[in-house]
């Protein structure tokens, strides 16, 4: 049994009329990268605030490293570094001064804080701008400074709310690399929320899909795919050069084929078991020039789309 770092037990958060989070159960293991996916307003940030003890859940309990987050928020905050979606720094202070302030608030002396700030600034490749005022920083720089800022306290858990929001693609790539590094080299538990699937897909061990305060599904991406698809049906994309009306007719007679769709460019063939070369053999033996035979796996996009549609329909 793996060690549980964050545990949410049946938590509910009620804001006046609407429920931001509804009976959520979730646990995150030590050392894993967990992605909380969901559209805007799904309750991701609220969940994060409850983990940090910044907001009290209406019902249920939150434990971080075995500590009750609502009753002992200060102890939780000693262990958890939190990067809000729109991180704010004191703009008339330099980058390193901001970090030193954070360090001192976490009980470091001035010298220790400065040393650690230098170290992390180097790690996030911000040392060239450490003496500049934060007011002059770009968004990407602020985000990287934010990453250094949460590392000042030597956290065991890092929580990031929409870390990639508003950064250019190159910046996102760098940031994700940094996050990946942190989890691999320092063994940090990382929880990040996002509505950008592709980015999360790259670095997350597991993801949870969160819609309207409820966790619709979670697991690693393969697991989600399996949940999404009927396990018996597998989709292939087929393009042939000399197709004719007989193709559909003949193909549908094959026992392993469930359905065939034409999208104007390619055939989508659904088969009821893993293809062992039968499809290719069929085309070749029927003298079709097979150009493409590709197994379509469901990416996060499809999963996301599918679940979100489900969520919308609940409206």
């Amino acid at each position: 049994m793996e060690e549980k770092m964050i545990q949410l037990k049946n938590i509910t958060k009620q804001y006046k009329e609407n429920k931001a989070v509804n009976h959520l159960n979730l646990s995150i293991n030590k050392g894993e990268v967990f992605g909380l996916l969901g559209p805007n307003g799904a309750g991701k940030s609220t969940t994060i605030y409850m983990i940090l003890g910044l907001t009290e859940p209406t019902e249920g309990e939150v434990y971080v490293d075995g500590i009750h987050a609502t009753n002992k928020p200060i102890e939780v905050k000693q262990r958890v570094g939190f990067l809000p979606d729109n991180v704010g720094f004191y703009e008339d202070m330099t980058g390193i001064e901001n970090l030193i302030l954070t360090g001192k608030l976490n009980g470091l002396t001035n010298a220790e804080a400065e040393k650690r700030a230098m170290h992390w600034l180097e790690q996030v490749r911000m040392n060239h701008a450490s003496a500049k005022k934060v007011g002059e920083y770009s968004r990407g720089m602020k985000q990287r400074l934010g990453l250094a800022d949460i590392l000042m306290k030597n956290p065991e858990v890092v929580i990031m709310d929409e870390p990639t929001l508003g950064i250019d693609p190159k910046g996102i790539h760098e940031l994700l690399d940094l996050i990946k590094n942190l989890s691999e080299e320092h063994g940090l538990t990382i929880l990040l929320s996002s509505h950008q699937l592709h980015q999360v897909q790259q670095i997350c061990d597991r993801v949870g899909i969160f819609v309207k305060g409820e966790l619709l599904a979670y697991g690693d991406i393969e697991e989600l795919q399996r949940k999404l698809l009927d396990e018996t049906s597998i989709l292939y994309k087929v393009i042939v050069k000399n197709d004719n009306h007989q193709l559909v007719e003949r193909l549908s007679m094959e026992s392993y084929v469930d359905s065939i769709d034409w999208d104007g460019e390619a055939y989508h063939v659904k088969v009821n078991r893993e293809d062992g070369g039968e499809l290719a053999r069929f085309f070749v033996s029927n003298q079709y020039d097979l150009l493409t035979l590709q197994r379509l796996s469901y990416g996060l996009d499809d999963i996301y789309q599918r679940y979100f549609q489900g969520g919308e329909m609940g409206d």
């Binding site: 910044l54 200060i74 102890e75 905050k77 570094g81 809000p84 004191y90 608030l105 976490n106 306290k153």
Partner: peptide, 17 residues
């Protein structure tokens, strides 16, 4: 002003009362 500049949240997530 701290709230509008988002610094409040960052300070609040430090281990201080």
């Amino acid at each position: 002003s701290e709230r509008n500049k988002n610094t409040l949240l960052r300070i609040m997530s430090q281990p201080i009362p």
